[in-house]
Design a protein around this nucleic acid. Structure first.
Lengths: 128, 128
DNA sequence: ATACATGTTTACGTTTACGTAAACGATAAC
DNA sequence: GTTATCGTTTACGTAAACGTAAACATGTAT
């Protein structure tokens, strides 16, 4: 039996609001089943939400995340489609590597600045 | 002699519009000197712009970047301030490390998915 | 049976991060 | 000397990503 989740279970678990989750549905990126009028989320929906939120943290827009998610869910193509898919995935991979470069630069900047601060603090201490 | 830049020199170099740069001024994050009414950007202003744009690529809002930039430009404090600063920098550093984790997760997901696609492609080839 | 928690839709509002358009100033080129 | 070129301010517009409020449905608890 596949587990399923209500909207509030998901919103609580991931620290977002129900409104946010419904918004994702309204833009066609996270579309759950229904039981009557209530939304029922599968574990695959849960993974999708994880991808969306991770994407946000990494500075991807919702439409960019949608693009990637659509790629993931389009695995069962024939040869031509598969090749295209692999290429697109590779592009996205390169984007991520660029981001990691940026991130490492930012970390290095921060570390060196922080070191400068600690140095200055030491000087102040020894001046006492 | 310190180099200086016009607004268009910077916007061209970094691939943004003059409007964007003026907007950063309007929110108090990138404030150049003036020659008459024209904006003159120093190399320190240039660095600030770099920080802002890198921050954007990493998913920081302008106000978050402003926070960090304000930290950087507040190095000349006395002991208490310095300690506070070092702590804040450390917080930001942890945020960046979290992001790097996210990034590595995303990369791993992508790689394994891409491998699955290549595998499937191979199977199709050999079925011919 | 009714209160309450949880869900729904619909319409409108809000913040962030800019873009557009108009009207104008200053300097350089012909 | 006027015509580009580059800049300026001011007011208004816009897309993305939600939030707010109202009015209503539905299942559970007492």
């Amino acid at each position: 039996m596949e587990p399923s989740y209500s909207i509030s279970e998901l919103s609580n678990e991931f620290g977002v609001t129900n409104i946010t989750i419904r918004y994702y549905e309204s833009i066609g990126i996270l579309i759950p089943k229904r039981y009557g009028q209530k939304r029922i989320y599968s574990s695959s929906d849960r993974v999708t939400l994880e991808l969306i939120l991770r994407g946000k943290r990494l500075g991807f827009s919702l439409s960019e995340s949608k693009e990637i998610i659509d790629l993931y869910s389009a695995s069962q193509g024939e040869e031509g489609q598969l090749k295209l898919l692999i290429n697109k995935l590779n592009d996205k991979r390169l984007e991520l590597l660029e981001k990691r470069k940026d991130l490492n630069t930012a970390l290095a900047t921060m570390d060196s600045y922080s070191a400068k601060c600690r140095q200055r603090l030491k000087e102040l201490e020894s001046d006492k």
